[in-house]
Amino acid sequence: MTVTATRRVLLVAHTGREEAREIARSFAKSLTAHGIVVRLIASEAAEIGLDAALFDPAIETVADDGAAAVDCEVAVVIGGDGTILRAAEITHGSGTPLLGVNLGHLGFLAEADPDDVEATIEAIIARDYTTEERLTVDVTVYRGTELVARTFALNEASVEKAARERMLEMVVEIDGRPLSRWGADGVVCATPTGSTAYNFSAGGPIVWPVVEALLIVPLSAHALFGRPMVVAPSSVIAIEVMATNEGAGVLWCDGRRTVDLPPGARIEVRRGAPVPLVRLHDSPFTDRLVAKFDLSVEGWRGAGERRLRNGGKTPDSAADTDGSDA
């Protein structure tokens, strides 16, 4: 007799939105009907209205203890990019791919929209999807030789001043060598995935997700050499908060996790383990930029567009058959 392994899907939702709760219930109903166990954080299950006692064993509830995503083939995330970043915390270390259903504004991390719910459910049931690995950063904080904090970021790690009225004096180091001293509001260290988030707002470059690189963007630096930089993915970026600072700083990772930085703190940022994102469509990143930012491409006459206008022929082949060269 063949024993079939139980399939499990983790479900994470923005429970503060009724639309998200409704979509979560739709996912749970459809997936469990196909023999797939749906797992939820216990507190979220109660807010969504999925009582495990009524659906057991098709619905599982677990504690948010760092092991919630273990043995799950995919994590379906219903909400905006903030919800996906929260899900990345839950799945960090498990390697579970994230599939975002966007209910937010831009939703660069999400793969599907609310109108795509049925197609997304069918893709999960049929395992008809691919994954794309996204670079992350590991972040460590030292006070002297003491390690005081360790975390990660999918989008960015930013060192910022804690007091509005004071600049933060710091020295930036790349691969063990000092680069520049800045008096600034802070500095953003971003991944290519995060290049469309805080990095973009701070004036940094947009980097295609397939590019392996780390980005450094100073925030309102009082320095001649205070420009955005792109460094190798193998580089180690270090930011030393000067001991002479009168005020403290704060480390933000993905806008969610914070660490207080006293004068003299050292923050090191290096490449971390990748996070897999589910892809349902093979759409170019260029198209995603155009759609998300509503960019004008009026007047474009690319090769593909010309072929469409010429009935599938290239401009040269069209010229050969229309008699213009006769």
Rank of each mutant, 00 (worst) to 15 (best):
G264N: 01
D320K: 08
G255D: 13
D282P: 05
V12W: 01
P218I: 07
A265I: 09
A163D: 11
H281G: 02
K29F: 10
V188N: 11
I36F: 00
V139H: 04
A119M: 11
F200S: 04
L154Q: 01
A52K: 11
I48N: 01
V148G: 09
L31N: 01
S43L: 10
T120P: 00
H92R: 15
A326S: 08
I125W: 00
E44H: 11
V236N: 01
Y142E: 12
P262K: 06
P57T: 05
T258I: 10
A28L: 01
D115G: 07
V275N: 04
H222R: 14
A326W: 08
T151Y: 15
I124G: 02
S201A: 15
D294Q: 08
V236F: 03
P178W: 03
G79K: 08
A153W: 04
V9G: 01
P218S: 12
T193K: 03
L109H: 01
L215F: 06
E19V: 09
T130K: 14
G302E: 03
D116A: 11
T91D: 08
H222Q: 15
T61H: 00
E47M: 14
V139D: 02
G82C: 06
E212H: 13
I125Q: 00
V12H: 03
R256M: 12
D116T: 05
V137T: 09
A24C: 05
V269P: 03
A184C: 14
V259N: 06
I237N: 13
F200I: 12
M167Q: 09
V236P: 00
A52C: 05
E47K: 13
V211C: 15
D322K: 10
A67K: 11
L261W: 08
E22D: 11
V278M: 00
E60W: 01
A149W: 10
R150N: 07
N310W: 13
F200R: 10
L308A: 13
L109Q: 00
V139T: 10
D128G: 07
S180Q: 14
K292A: 06
M242D: 14
L99V: 07
T258L: 12
L224G: 02
T15W: 01
T258E: 15
A162F: 11
D64E: 11
S158D: 07
S201Q: 10
A69G: 14
A53E: 13
G249D: 11
D260Q: 10
W252M: 09
E19G: 15
R7H: 02
A223G: 09
I36C: 00
D138A: 14
A42N: 03
P276R: 12
V3Y: 09
V241G: 09
E146C: 04
S324P: 06
R181A: 14
A87G: 09
D175R: 15
E246I: 08
T96H: 02
P284A: 12
D325A: 12
V77L: 00
E60H: 03
E212S: 13
V141G: 03
L10Y: 07
V171N: 04
C253T: 15
P284F: 11
P205K: 03
E212D: 14
